[in-house]
Amino acid sequence: MLSRLSIRSARSLGLAQATRSISATVPAFKSTYDSPDFTHYLNSSKGSSDKSRDFTYFMVGSYGVLGAAAAKSTVEAFLTTMSASADVLAMAKVEVKLNAIPLGKNVVVKWQGKPVFIRHRTPDEIEEANEVDISKLRDPQADSDRVKNPEWLVMLGICTHLGCVPIGEAGDFDGWFCPCHGSHYDISGRIRKGPAPLNLEIPQYEFADPETLVVG
């Protein structure tokens, strides 16, 4: 068997060398091996060769698109693990532009995942907050102890009863009303009626400049 192969290769080699010695313009790709005739399997019409070629390239390209989409999703998934983690975000501070809050309006800001109520109080409301008899309150606290600047009321929007978010400009005391169990808070965020035990909590905050409030 080995001898038969070597004879074939020698013969074909000999043929190629002979052909090369005869002419210098012999096409180098023309096979000199015996091969069967496949013409009755081939695509007969000459015109559709571009179409079939395009189809093949399109199929390969689509596979590439799916692979690239998978790779992109994987990379994005890994990159998001490197972004700020929840504990870093939890220690973050929040800045609020105060000139965006008109007089007599509430604004809710998300800080460390909690809602913070900011109210731009009118002078009437400040007076109302100061006029309350503190000794009659469930959680006695003067308004001046709760705010740094009476014009701006900043407090955590979490009901001290069981943690729902009270609704602003609602309730019997011109303040906030918690819809879960009916706690009423007044214009200084102090508990007046309902099951909550304490006033709405005041977070750490400061006025970086007269127009900017930094919570946290």
């Binding site: 571009d50 179409k51 070629r53 395009d54 390239y57 390209g61 690239a68 992109k72």
Partner: peptide, 23 residues
């Protein structure tokens, strides 16, 4: 079909660029 081939599929740089755009 031949123009599509010549514009998009012939050079690998354009082919790969079209794959990323399609992705």
């Amino acid at each position: 079909y031949s123009s599509v081939f010549n514009i998009v599929f012939k050079r690998n740089s354009t082919f790969v660029a079209s794959i990323f755009a399609a992705t």
